[in-house]
Design a protein around this nucleic acid. Structure first.
Lengths: 205, 205
DNA sequence: AATTTAATTGAACAGTGTTTAATTTTCCAA
DNA sequence: TTGGAAAATTAAACACTGTTCAATTAAATT
C-alpha cells in the first residue's frame, strides 16, 4: 500500500531536513557550536525528535562526513580521463588539496574531527569504508605508477600512505591554524610552492 | 621585603598546581573531558579561583602546549652532535615522530587542538613563537642540506614546509584515528615503513 | 585592634548532549 | 464515523559545561 511508503518517505524527508540544517549550521559555526538544540530550532521541532532519527550527535556528523566523501569522489571521477598513472597521481593530489581549500570545514570533519570516526568505532564495524575506498583509489594509482617503473625500492602500502600523509599534512596544518601564525609568507602560497616541490620529488622518484 | 616575594612564590605555586592538575586530567581524559570544575576539584579549590591565574581555559592549555614544546626542544638538543646536515634532518624526523608516539595527547594539543592557537590569535601576538622556533630549527637544517648540494631545484621554505607536513601528516592521521580503522596492516608498522620510504626519498634528493 | 588589601568562594547565567514519561497526532478496523 | 492501537512529537528533567561577580574570608599593614 502507498501509505506505508509515504510514511517512510516523510520520515526520510525529516531526516534530510535535520542533515541539511546541521550542515548549514556546521559550515557557518563549526562543530562545537552546532548544538542539537540549534538544529532543532532550525527545523522548528523540539530537540528530542532528532534522537528518533539519529543515535547521537556523532551519527549526524558521520552522515555529513559521508556527504563530504561523496563530493570528493565525484571530483576524483575526472581522473579516469588521465591515462598516465603518474600524471593521474599528480592530478589527484591537486584535487585533494583543492577540495580541502574550498571545503575546509568538511575536510576537517572527514579527516580531523573525532565525531564521525568515533561513530564508526562505536558500532564495531571496524572498517571506515569512506576512508578505505579513497585510500584504495590512491593505492591503485600508485600501484600502476610502480608498474611503469616509478618508486623503485619502495613498498606500495608505505609509499601510498606517505603520499596521503604529505597532502594531509599540508592541508591540516593550514586548517588547524598552524601556518597563518607562523613567521612565513602567505599561507596558500607556501602550500602551493610545497606541492610543487612535492611534484618535483615525484618526478624524480 | 620577603613577604611580597613569598606571596608571589605562593601565587606561582598555585598556578603550578593548576597546571599540573590540568595536565594530569588532560593526559588521562582528553581536552573536552577536562573541565575547569575537574581541575578545581583536583587541587581542592573552588572553580572560580582558576580565573585569577588564567584568562580562560584556552590559556591553561596554551601553557601546557608550551611545556610540550619545551620537552620536544629538549629532545632535539642531541641533534647538535650530528654533524652531517642530512643525517641530522633524518634524525630530526625520527625524534619528532617518536615524541608524537610517546606523547600523543601533547602532540595533539601542540599541533591539532585549536585551544592553544586560539589563545595566541586572541591576544594579537600574531606570532606563534613555539611553532616558529621549531620550524626554524627544521628550516636551518634544510638550508645546510641545500648548501651541501641536496634538494636541488627546491626552495628552502617550500621544501621545509613539505617535510614538516609529511611527518605531521603521518602522525596526525594516526592520532585522529584515521589509520586504525583502515583496511591496512598494523598502524605503527605502516608509519615506520612510510618513514623509511621518506628517508629513501630524502637520500635521492 | 582597626582598617585596608588580597584571596577565595558560592551562586548564578546561559548553555551542552541525552533520556524518558507524557502528550499529541495519525492510522485503520469495526 | 468512531474507538483504540500505533506512531510521532514534546516538555521536562539530569548532569554536565565555561565564565562572571558579588559576597565572604583570610592576610597584611598601619
Amino acid at each position: 500500500m502507498g501509505v506505508a511508503e509515504r510514511k517512510i518517505r516523510e520520515k526520510e524527508e525529516l531526516k534530510d531536513q535535520i542533515l541539511k540544517a546541521a550542515k548549514r549550521l556546521f559550515i557557518e559555526r563549526g562543530f562545537e557550536k552546532t548544538s542539537i538544540r540549534n538544529i532543532a530550532d532550525e527545523i522548528e521541532y523540539s530537540p528530542g525528535i532528532i534522537y528518533h532519527y539519529f543515535q547521537d550527535k556523532n551519527e549526524i556528523f558521520y552522515a555529513l562526513h559521508q556527504e563530504g566523501f561523496q563530493e570528493l569522489r565525484k571530483r576524483m571521477e575526472i581522473l579516469g580521463a588521465v591515462e598516465d598513472p603518474m600524471s593521474r597521481l599528480k592530478a589527484m593530489g591537486r584535487i585533494y588539496i583543492q577540495y580541502a581549500f574550498e571545503n575546509a570545514d568538511m575536510y576537517d570533519l572527514m579527516f580531523i574531527i573525532e565525531a564521525p570516526i568515533d561513530f564508526v568505532v562505536k558500532r564495531d564495524d571496524l572498517c571506515w569504508i569512506e576512508g578505505d575506498s579513497t585510500f584504495n583509489l590512491l593505492r591503485s594509482t600508485v600501484n600502476q605508477c610502480m608498474q611503469k617503473g616509478h618508486f623503485e625500492g619502495h613498498h606500495l602500502e608505505a609509499i601510498s600512505f606517505l603520499i596521503w600523509s604529505t597532502v594531509h599534512g599540508m592541508v591540516s596544518l593550514k586548517i588547524r591554524k598552524r601556518v597563518n601564525v607562523l613567521d612565513v609568507g602567505e599561507v596558500d602560497q607556501i602550500i602551493e610552492n610545497s606541492y610543487n616541490s612535492f611534484l618535483l620529488i615525484l618526478d624524480r622518484s
